[in-house]
Each structure stands twice: as C-alpha cells, then as structure tokens.
Simulated assay, not measured.
Amino acid sequence: MALPDYETIRWERHGRVLRLELNRPDRLNAVDARMHSELARVFVDAAEDPDSDVIVLTGAGRAFCAGGDLAWQQAAIDDPVSFEVTAAEAKRIVFSLLDCEKPVIARVNGPAVGLGCTLALFCDVIFAAEDAVLSDPHVKVGMVAGDGGAVIWPQLIGYARAKEFLMTGDALTGAQAAAMGLVNHALPAADLDAAVDAFAERLSKSALQAVRWSKVSVNIGLRQLAHSIMDASIAYESLTNRSADHQEAIAAMREKRAPIFTGR
C-alpha cells in the first residue's frame, strides 16, 4: 500500500511500525481546518494499512500539538455554521481512534494542549517527555472541552481531579501526569525515542490478534461513554463558540493581554 498523501500529517514506516507525525512545526503543530479534516480520517486509513501492525503518533519539531490554531478559531467565530463541520469531524477523530484495532502509542515530545492533549490521552499507551506540558485549557478560551476531554480525563485520573483540571485549564508536566496516572511513562526527552521504539517493536512481535482484540475489549466501555457524552459536550462547545467570552479570549491572545470575561 502506498503512503497516503496527507498535507499536515507525515507517514513513515519503520518495519511494521507506522509513525504518524503531526507536521506543522512552525505552528507547534496547532490544528487548523486542514489538519482537523485529516485527523478525522487518518486513523481509518492507518487501520487499513496492510504494511503495519503498530502506530506511533507524535509531533514534528518541539511540540506534540498546541491545540487549535488561533486563526482557525477566529474563523469559526466569524462563521459559526462552519463549526458544524468541526463538530462532526471531532466525533470521527475520537471514534476512529477507539475503533482502530492496531495499538496506538503516543510519543508526547512537547506541549500537548487542548485537542492535542485529547489525541494523546485517547492513545493506548502514552510516553511523555518529563518536561512536556499537558493541558486542556478550553475554559481559558471561553469554551467547553467538547472534543473528548470530558470523556477521557475522568477515566484516567478520576472525576474530582478531572473536573479540577478541566474547569481551570491548569497544566501538568509529563512527570506530574505520569505520577497521577494520566500518562503511562515520563522520561527524559533524550530517552523518549529509544523507549517508544522499543515498546513499539515489542508489540509488533507479539501475538497480534490477542493484542488487538484485548484493546478492542477494553475500549468497549470507552466507546459507550463517548457515545453517551460527546453529542452533548460538542453541542455545549458549539454554544460557547458563539459566546462573547470566547471572542474576548481570542482577541486577548492576539493582543497578548489577559482576557476580561463577563460570563456571556
């Protein structure tokens, strides 16, 4: 199978391991409309790739994924109807990750923010650099964490902790995330590649049907939760996309100042 033609996600095979690299390094791999569309289909294409058995998801350069691109967020404010496409794609991203039978390993090499953090947390095993920053700061831009954060955070660290981080948008280092069980492993950045490569190679030489179907079995509960939560959380996110607070947050980021929220 030839490597698919993606504009914002680089495909590389190393033996039976497929590496998917978010590839907007000059923007810290922030998600724009094109990348969001490609993320909505990349895990389906990767699942169907006959030349790989294990997937590694990572980011080019010094970031994993910095969340939503500022210009893309402003475009959604200016044209709220366009958020309907984003909402449909957001569900496909999460469910295609959950439905992919191949093990997906996250290599969190740098900041994983917002949707970037959601992508990492929905992977099956997560390796993070100790100094990587993980956060879901939707509330800091006046939005609901509708793209999957409300599903996955409570399953990994419990409801009380999840609500604290989702309601504040506070960040964790990779080391802190590993200590509380949000990610599997945190290690020095210089050791990240060796650890991920060794684990991916180990899985690729395992009894693959047993590995895949163990993942599928565990994900049944997550899929049920995602089905019960995501329609509501995305709907709430779409409402906050139209809010004055969201526009104020985006303007404040552009003007490099603190936002002044009014609750509207």
Rank of each mutant, 00 (worst) to 15 (best):
R27Q: 06
E255I: 07
D147R: 11
G142C: 03
G61F: 13
P111H: 04
V42Y: 04
G67C: 10
F122E: 01
I250P: 06
V139C: 08
A63H: 09
R161L: 15
L156I: 06
L192A: 05
F43C: 00
T262I: 12
K102P: 03
I250V: 13
A63L: 11
D32R: 08
K140Y: 10
V31K: 00
L57M: 09
D245E: 03
S243N: 00
E255D: 15
H185A: 10
N23D: 15
S135E: 14
H227S: 08
V44E: 14
R264Y: 13
A87R: 07
K215G: 14
L225T: 09
S52Q: 04
V104P: 01
V17C: 08
R242K: 10
A251M: 11
Q155C: 11
E21F: 04
S243K: 02
S233R: 00
W72E: 01
A190L: 10
S37D: 13
S217I: 13
W213Y: 14
R27L: 15
D32I: 05
C117K: 03
A88S: 06
F43M: 11
V183H: 02
D231A: 07
P111S: 06
A30V: 07
A46F: 12
K205P: 05
E201I: 13
T8Q: 10
D136K: 04
G68T: 12
M35T: 02
K163V: 12
A30T: 14
F95Y: 04
A235Q: 06
T262F: 11
D5R: 08
M180P: 08
D170C: 11
H185C: 06
F127H: 01
S238P: 01
Q73G: 08
L187S: 04
L156H: 05
D124N: 03
G59C: 11
F165A: 09
P259G: 12
V31T: 08
L18F: 02
I220W: 09
W213V: 11
L182H: 07
S96T: 12
E255S: 01
F261N: 09
G148Q: 07
I250Y: 03
F127P: 06
G67E: 04
A177P: 00
L98M: 00
E12D: 06
Q74I: 05
D191W: 12
D69Y: 03
R107K: 13
E201A: 09
G146H: 03
D231M: 03
L18T: 00
R41M: 11
E21H: 06
A66F: 13
V133W: 10
P188W: 10
A194M: 15
A186S: 14
A186K: 04
N109V: 06
M35W: 06
R13T: 15
G116A: 13
S206E: 15
F199N: 13
P137N: 06
V196H: 01
Q176K: 12
F127S: 00
A190F: 12
D78M: 03
L20V: 02
T173H: 00
V144E: 01
A232L: 09
S135C: 10
C65H: 03
A160S: 15
A194D: 10
K102M: 02
A132C: 02
M143E: 11
F261I: 10
A207K: 13
T262E: 14
A90R: 07
A194G: 06
V54C: 05
A106C: 03
Q74K: 02
L115E: 05
K256D: 11
F83Q: 04
D197Y: 05
A186I: 07
I152G: 09
L222T: 08
